[in-house]
Design a protein around this nucleic acid. Sequence first.
RNA 1: GCCGAAGUGGCGGAAUUGGUAGACGCGCACGACUCAAAAUCGUGUAUCGCAAGAUGUGAGAGUUCGAUUCUCUCCUUCGGCACCA
Length: 879
Amino acid sequence: MSSTYNHQEIEQKWQKYWVDHKIFAAEDKSRKPKYYCLIEFPYPSAEGLHVGHPRSYTALDIIARKRKMEGYNVLYPIGFDAFGLPAENYAIKTGVHPKIKTEENINNFRKQLKSLGLAFDWSREVITSDPEYYKWTQWIFLQLFKHGLAYKAEMPINFCLDCQVGLANEEVVGGQCERCGSEVIKKTKKQWLLKITKYADRLEKDLAGLDYIERVKIQQKNWIGKSEGARVRFKISSPYQGEVSCLPAQAGSDGGVAESIGQPPLTPPWKGGEIKVYTTRPDTLFGATYMVLAPEHELVQQLKDQITNFSEVKDYIKTSAKKSDLERTELNKEKTGVELYGIKAINPVNNQEIPIWLSDYVLASYGTGAIMAVPAHDERDYEFAKKFNLEIIEVIKGGDVSQAAYTDINDGQMVNSDFLNGLNPKEAIVKMTGWLKENNLGEPAVNYKLRDWVFSRQRYWGEPIPLIFCSACKKSMENSKFQIPNSKYNEGELLNPGWVADENLPLELPEIKEFQASGEGESPLAKLENWVNVKCPKCGGSAKRETDTMPQWAGSSWYFLRYADPHNNKALASEKNLKYWTPVDWYNGGMEHTTLHLLYSRFWHKFLYDIGVVPTSEPYQKRTSHGFILGEGGEKMSKSRGNVINPDDVVKEYGADTFRLYEMFMGPFDQAIPWDTKGVVGMRRFLEKIWIRFNGIIEDDIVGGVFAKEPLSDDKNIKELEILLNQTIKKVSDDIENMKFNTAVSALMILLNKYFDLSISDFAKEKIIFEKFSKNFLILFSPFAPHIAEELWQKLGHNKILLKEEWPKADEAKLKDEEVEIVVQINGKVRAKIKLPSDISEEEAIVAAKADLNIQKYLADQKIKKTVFVPGRLISFVI
RNA sequence: GCCGAAGUGGCGGAAUUGGUAGACGCGCACGACUCAAAAUCGUGUAUCGCAAGAUGUGAGAGUUCGAUUCUCUCCUUCGGCACCA
C-alpha cells in the first residue's frame, strides 16, 4: 500500500514548482543581508555535462540553500562561457557555424543543469558570445587600451605548419599539433598583450586579506614569483678601444625599482656600454668571475664590431633560437655557450676584468636578460664554469667549493670579500646593497616571474578586438608627442602609435563561411576585405581593423559582475547593483584555473576598481576548490578509455537527489576520487529507506494513528535521541561550512537509523517527538536531496515549503550526554570502559575505575606511579 | 630539481588543542522471507589466535603515561612549476 519512491515524478514536480514560484530569483532590493555564491560557468561543450561539473555546483547549491534558510537574499547565478576552440574546430570540419553549434550545446546544458534541481537564478543567465554581453568585454578592453595597459609587441607563438594556424600552449601536445599531429614551430608574431605585470605586486600582497584556501594562495604566489635583490651595473671594456661606455650611460637615471618587470623579450631594458644584471645574492659579488648574456640580448648586436669571433657567436644564437621549448628543457643537463672575444666586463667591486659569455641557460625574458656568474655559490654557474674551465672563487665559507656550489644563504661566513669579510650572507646582502647605492653602481630591485598576458588569438570564434589601425593617425601621433589621456598609468611613452579605438560597440563578429585560418596564420577575419577596410574614426581616412580576436579568458574575467545586473544596456552593471552584490562571497572552482582565470579576473577587477567602475578591489572574498572525479578504476574519464559516466543516465535511472547525494558523499570534496556505481546504488537505498519509513508513519497515521495518545515515559531513549538530534544539527551545519559534505551525510544517516531503531520500541512514535525529528531532519537533509525532502515535508501536511523554513540551531545545553563512557588505560593500553556521569570529579572517577574488576586484576601488587585524568574521556594509570 | 597535497581494512573513506583507530557507505559471509532468484530485513566483517591476548594507520627513529595526529630521516603516489640568477 505504501507508494513507491518515484523520483522522476517528484523531481519534475518540484523543479516546476521552484520555477513557477520564482523561488531562486535573487532580489536586487531587499532588507535581508545579501549572499553571493558563485561557481565557474561551464564551457558548453558538445559532450554535454561531465559528472565533475555537478560536484562543484551541488556543493555551492547546498551553501546557497542553507544561506536562504538562514535568512539571506541569495544570488546563485549561472551562465555559459560560450566562445572557444572546439566550436571553431567543429566549424572548420563541418561548416556548421560556431554560433549554431554553441546554441545547440547550450540548450543541452540548460536541460541537463535543470534536471539536477540546482538553485540557480536562471533569469540572470549570461552568455559570453552574446553581443549584448561582449559589448562590455570589448568596452573593458578599450579602457585597458586607453590607460596604456594594452600594447602590441612581437611574440614567439606556436604555429602549426599544416593547419596554418596559431595554437595556444594547451593545444600543443609533446611539440605536436593536437589536431593534426604535425610539428609545431615557433613563429614570431605581433600580439596584443595586457600589462598584468603592473599589478604583480598588488596581486600578491592583497592575497593576505582574502579567504582563499592555502593551496590557491601558494600557487598564485609562486606564479607571480616575486623576488627581491639588487640590480648591478658592470662596465664593458675592450682591449682595442678602451672603455666603450661612450654610449649615453643611463646610470641612476631610471632609479625605479621594478623597471624591467615582465617586458617582452624584444623590447629589452638594457642600454649603453654596460651590462645590467639582476641578482638576489649581491653578497656574492666578489665571487663573480664571468658574466653571461642571453643569446637574444640586444647588446650582442650593438657590440658586434668589437666582438672578434662574431661569426661563431652568430651561429650559437641561431642554433639556440631553433631549439624548441621541449629541446631547451630536455637538454637542460648539458650547458652550452660561447665566449665573446674582444670585450670584457669589469666587476664594479674590485675593478677586475672578467669574461663575457653567451648561453641559453640565461633567459632573455627574466630580469635583465644577463647575469653575473658566481660559480662558487650557484649550481648552474658552477656547472657552466666546470665545463668551460672558468675561475671559481669562494666568497662564503661553509661548503666544499671543490666539490659543489655552496648555496646556503642562512649559514656561512664571508671571505675574500674585502669589506664584507666576517659577515654572514644576510648581513652581507644588506651591506653590499647599501654600498652599491652609495657608489651609484646599483640599487635594490624587485623581480617577478609573472609575464604579461598574451591577449590576441588568430581565431574567428572570439570577441573581435575593437581597434583600427590608421597610418595617417600614426604619423600625427608621432609628431605630436602622444600621451595616454586620463591615465594614471601614463608613462609618456609613444604606445601603440596609429591604433584607434572603435567606440561603436558592440563590434559584432561578421558572418563568414570559411573558418579556416588565412594565409600566414592570420585570423579568418582577415579575409573579409569589406570588414577589414574601414574609415578611421579619428581622421576619416582609410584604415584597417584589427583581425585578431580575444582569448577565451576575456569573457570569463568579469562575468560575475554582469550577473549583478545582466540586462543593463547602459553599463556593464549599475553602480547600485554592484555595490549591493559584490564582492562574490564564495567562489568555488577548479585548481586548474588558479593561475589563469582566477589571476586574470583579479587583475581586471583591480583595474576596474582603479578606474572607478567597481566598488571593491578584489572580486572574490572566499575561494575554494573541488577535486576531480575520475573514472571507475581511478583513471581520468575520457572518451578514448570508454569510462565516461553520463550524468543524464544517472539522473534518469536513480534520480537527481541520488546523484547529488552520492557526489557529496563519495569522499572529501577537495580530493580527486574515482566514480563508483555501487556507491550510487547505496545512496539510492538510503533515499528509499527514508521514503518508506516516513511514508509508513504518514499512512499509518491517516489510517488509525500510530502515535501514542499519552506521553510515553521512556526518558532515557528520549534524552538520547534529543542529544543526537542536537549533535547532528551542529555537525551538519559545521560540516557544510567546511565543505565536509561526506561526514555531514553520514551524520544524517546515523540520525535517521537511530530514530527508526528506537521507534520500534514505540516511544519515538509520540507525535511531538516525531514532529521535532522530522522537521529538523528534513531541513538538514534538504540541501543535499531537495526534491524528496520537499515532497515528504508536503506529505506531512505542511503548506509552507521547506526552503522557507528556518535553518535550525543546536541547543548547546543538549549536546552532551549526562553519562559518558570513560576509558581506563594502564600503561597506555585500554583495559576497561566504564559509564560515569560526564561531570564527575577526578577523585570519584579514579575510585570508580579502581573498582572495576578487570582493572583490579591489572593493578594487583602494582605501584601506581602516575594517574592522568581527562574529563569525559579517560583515566590512565602508569604502573 | 623546487613548491604543494596525500599514503589508514577487500574498496571509498572517518577520527588531529595528542586520549577507545576503522564512523558512514560499498563489498563479502551467514541467517530470515521465497518453490527459487532478485529486492528487502537481521547478524557479522582490520590481522593472527579456540580463547585469554597480541599486532596494526607507507618505512625507520624520537618526544609522551598515551602518537593516524607532534619532531627528524627516508620511500611512494598525485597535482603544479621547471635553468627565474
